[in-house]
Computed example of a mutant assay.
Amino acid sequence: METEVQVIGFVFPVYAFSLPKPVEAFLKEVYLPKDVFLFAVATRGGSSCQVFEEIDRILEKKGIKLNARFFLDMPNNYLTMFTPPAEVEANKILDVAETRLRDISKFISRREDSKEKDPHESYFEKNILFPILSRVYKKTNYFGMEKKFCTDSKCTGCSLCSKLCLSGKIHMEEGIPVWNQQINCYHCLSCIHYCPAQAIQLKDTKTNKIGRYHNPYITFEDIILQKLRD
């Protein structure tokens, strides 16, 4: 199969120190020509992980590998483990990320191979601790977190969460969002972070006592439009 594409990239967030399930499934199924420059950019909260090694293991079966790989540190909003950053702190992280993106774009535009050292890398975390935690998260489906979603009295029934849900897990019943337990959650937490009333909570956690955060440059309209394209 011939192609005129010369550069192909994968940009994705790190979930539980690993590849998100949809990204992993996509990489296994997608056709990739062997004569293109392949790169990957993984956004994360800062922890070291093996996502690029995971990608190369998948691509190896296709007879190809990544030419370049980059981590991009972003504000961490996985609020089941971390408190979302305050606006000032988040903006500082985004400023650094913007500079970092310019450097990454230069490598890609020049099609330079890059396997730079991860400044956060820890042998114990990357090769022992986080792989074990990742397997546990996947085995238990994030400790059954998707069964903990609920709304409190602040819910206005706006249905934004159901429109945003990438997995199609949320639907409305009598003006109240319901999470279908037969559909797997992607664990993106968009429903929580974009809820205008901060009405979505996780049972047996402190989500009702901490704030929310989503990238100010990504609107809920952007996510909905992306869903329509898919």
Rank of each mutant, 00 (worst) to 15 (best):
T3P: 00
E4D: 09
V5P: 03
I8V: 08
G9W: 01
V11C: 15
F12A: 04
P13W: 00
P13G: 09
V14L: 15
Y15M: 10
A16S: 08
F17T: 13
F17N: 13
L19P: 04
P22A: 02
V23M: 10
A25R: 14
A25W: 12
E29V: 05
Y31I: 06
Y31H: 02
L32G: 03
P33I: 02
P33S: 01
K34S: 01
K34Q: 06
D35M: 06
D35F: 08
F39M: 09
F39G: 03
A42N: 03
T43I: 10
C49R: 05
V51C: 02
V51S: 10
F52Q: 05
E54D: 15
D56V: 03
R57H: 07
L59F: 03
L59Q: 07
E60V: 05
K61D: 04
K62Y: 00
I64E: 00
L66S: 09
R69H: 04
M74S: 13
P75C: 01
N77E: 08
N77A: 10
Y78N: 15
T80C: 07
M81W: 12
T83W: 08
E87F: 14
V88W: 11
A90M: 12
A90W: 15
I93Y: 13
L94I: 05
D95Q: 11
D95V: 13
V96W: 00
E98F: 02
R100L: 03
I104C: 02
I104W: 03
S105R: 11
F107Q: 01
F107P: 10
I108C: 06
E121H: 15
E121V: 06
F124A: 06
F124N: 07
E125F: 11
N127L: 06
L129V: 15
S134C: 10
V136I: 14
Y137P: 00
Y137V: 09
Y137T: 04
K139P: 07
F143I: 10
F143Y: 11
K148S: 13
F149G: 05
T151A: 09
D152M: 11
S153C: 07
K154I: 07
K154N: 05
T156G: 03
G157V: 02
S159L: 03
L160A: 07
L166K: 01
S167Q: 00
S167R: 01
I170Q: 02
I170D: 00
H171P: 11
P177H: 00
V178G: 01
W179T: 08
Q181P: 06
Q182I: 07
C188M: 07
L189H: 04
L189I: 02
L189A: 08
S190H: 12
C191Q: 11
H193C: 08
Y194W: 12
C195H: 03
A197N: 13
Q198D: 15
I200W: 14
Q201Y: 10
L202W: 14
K206E: 12
N208G: 02
N208R: 05
K209I: 04
I210N: 10
I210C: 09
I210E: 04
G211K: 06
G211D: 04
Y213H: 04
H214R: 02
P216W: 07
P216C: 07
I218H: 13
I218F: 12
E221L: 14
I223Q: 05
L225W: 15
Q226E: 13
K227M: 08
L228E: 15
D230C: 12
